[in-house]
Design a protein around this nucleic acid. Structure first.
Lengths: 156, 156
DNA sequence: ACTGAAAGTGGCGGACA
DNA sequence: TGTCCGCCACTTTCAGT
């Protein structure tokens, strides 16, 4: 698909990535354009799926989500089942990310829970029930140094 | 630190996590409270660092960021150097996440670039210059099934 | 595509319960 | 704290260029 973004679009994305709650008027001022013109561009970026959503980054510690783990899942079957297995993993709310990866391990999953025991009960109650999972390898995060979903916006 | 969030705070977080650009008036309506009361709570959540930031999720494909990789970095030294090594990794804009992990591998890094060759040049130009990196193991993502930073908000 | 004007609405400060 | 009120600023639409 072609998105065809010009410099103004990229500038909008950069500002809104840094602060999703910036007012349309402020955005227009900073880019020296009329508010209505900016509004029109933002709407188009939304409908073209360039802008996926606006979200609030919450401090995980504030709501007792202290444990972060990455789990490598090995699938026992070929390609037919994979999409279904992935969908079931993705349906778990505590699962933030599901990636199909190259190499022997089939999936990489990012999970957030309150503590180690709740992770274990999650794996027992939900993950073990998903068919075709041959093995799991869990990596516990001791400390997160950086965690920002920001993309590098190309200049010009 | 104590955050002491009540049900209303949690409801605010849930709504704002789903849509950071919701108007304060809409938020107040959905929670059946006065707009100014909600505004005051939101400000406090921001200053208590419960709300970290408001950000826009951009489609990576729209700005030619098609490659996603996870890199396991093994550090050759003990604890003294680690924080500095991590800081240098975190300073790289293409690096979205840096986690200190349990096990033999010291760090897990999430990186986004345009393609495989740009990842290689990034590793050569920036990562290899960071001292105390003994080895790296790179995992390429073939397909991302789910990628949402949403936290599970506890009910009540 | 961008500008500019016009009408409706929300943001935000103050006084009060 | 939460509510009510009032002014100003912002959003949003529409016609024009």
């Amino acid at each position: 698909m072609e998105f065809n973004l010009d410099n103004i679009d990229l500038a909008i994305l950069e500002k809104m990535q840094a602060n999703a709650r910036i007012s349309n008027a402020d955005l227009a001022r900073e880019l020296s354009m009329a508010p209505s013109a900016i509004l029109e561009r933002v709407k188009k970026l939304e409908q073209k799926d360039v802008i996926r959503r606006y979200t609030t980054a919450i401090n995980p510690a504030a709501i007792q989500q202290k444990l972060l783990a990455f789990i490598f899942l090995r699938s026992s079957e070929g390609f037919t089942c994979c999409s279904d297995t992935a969908a079931q993993l993705a349906a778990i709310p505590e699962v933030q990310e599901v990636h199909h990866i190259a190499g022997e391990d089939c999936y990489l999953v990012k999970v957030r829970t309150t503590d180690a025991s709740s992770l274990m009960s999650l794996m027992r109650s939900k993950m073990q029930k998903i068919p075709n999972i041959a093995s799991t390898k869990t990596t516990i995060v001791l400390e997160t140094v950086k965690e920002q979903p920001d993309l590098v916006i190309p200049k010009t």
